[in-house]
Design a protein around this nucleic acid. Structure first.
Lengths: 207, 207
DNA sequence: GAGATATGTCAATAAGGCTGACATAAAAAT
DNA sequence: ATTTTTATGTCAGCCTTATTGACATATCTC
């Protein structure tokens, strides 16, 4: 979207800043991230410049803080049910891909069946998730959310959505596309196809 | 940086692809995230439209997968030292803010001193971190990385940087700014000032 | 000096993961 | 019709990260 200027620019003349004085009590936080701090080799000479790339500390750190707060909302909600974030993930992906099998869920979460089972058992016991035997292959357990589970799952997505919407509202137009591109590209290449299939569905689940 | 055009249009076609159609089966993963899927109320009537916002599943899920892979690199590296991601965080922030106090570190990580101490003790024992008594206040313990610690910390930032650079190289120009804005805006407002100070330094550490 | 602060430490507990060893039912292969 | 493979479940023990609560020690501050 290339909007360097257009918008954004000005921010807290920041960092290096000029004005003397005590900048430290930052106006509770400016709307946008300071500018002009491309991690140096941003547009390096194209050459396979394999040497030293100054770490992009801004992204590294903001990613950490952003993700921490991002998961804190559902965390809080689950707490009242005696659940944790492991439960969140299950509720989320079962909700998103109704009828997926244990194996598929394991593949998405990349945890062991023992770990999954401990948590899944609680969700089933408490009536958030249901299992049904596979139709074509009766060994499989197809997972579904109950109404209760659906409600909780949606509630959690809702709070996360609020945070995302708030964040995007503070960004320039086109930011969402850029963020999607970036996040997708941050995924291990050998996994991106899998994730793409999951996020931008198209494959029919088994019956 | 090389971006197609301004936008990002021309999607998938690569890899398997050939014949037109079949839009759905994402060639083992295309470079960019599919388009045109703004979460509906993206640009709603401006009105305080408080009702229902369709969850932005794309961002929600990509954030999860991206972050998981993002921390997997350092995780692997730390493993060989018998360390975990808790050690990573300490090494990172001590490296970034040489001489910070225990209290400051606790404030950044938002964990208890007991949790911090368990891990910090190991890092000191193994010679990755050093403590010195504060100058003005000798009760304080100022933390510093040793050369060994600095090396490890940089190595971890380096792999993360590589992933980030790779990701940004697949995005349109301006993506980095958009991502920074977004990530920063995803942080709890009451914490963003703190984070801003930390990321875009300006406050002098104590001696 | 008295009290507040910065840090350290012991003990118990929880959540989420892991490995290894088995067990069962149902599908597949021979 | 067996045998083998798969998909799933489960028991047991262990690890890492974090928590809460109770104290202990310097060192500031008033």
């Amino acid at each position: 979207m290339a909007q360097l200027r257009t918008r954004t620019a000005a921010r807290r003349s920041a960092a290096v800043d000029v004005s003397p004085i005590e900048e430290e009590a930052p106006a509770p936080s400016d709307v946008k991230a300071p500018r002009a701090s491309a991690p140096m080799n941003a547009d390096a000479p194209a050459g396979d410049d394999r040497d030293r790339a100054s770490p992009d500390y801004e992204i590294i750190e903001l990613f950490f803080f952003a993700y921490r707060d991002f998961v804190s909302d559902p965390d809080r909600m689950l707490n009242s049910y005696g659940f944790g974030r492991a439960h969140h993930r299950i509720l989320h992906f079962v909700g998103r891909q109704s009828g997926l099998t244990i194996a598929e869920l394991l593949d998405i979460l990349r945890i062991t069946k023992q770990s999954l089972n401990r948590v899944l058992k609680e969700l089933i016991r408490d009536g958030f998730v249901e299992q049904r035997a596979g139709v074509t292959d009766r060994r499989q357990r197809l997972l579904y959310l109950t109404e209760k589970g659906e409600a909780l799952s949606l509630a959690m997505s809702a709070v996360q959505q609020e945070r995302i919407a708030r964040a995007l509202s503070k960004c320039d137009a086109g930011a969402r596309e850029a963020v999607l591109d970036f996040l997708f590209a941050m995924i291990d290449p050998d996994d991106s196809a899998h994730v793409a299939r999951l996020v931008w569905k198209e494959a029919g689940r088994r019956s």
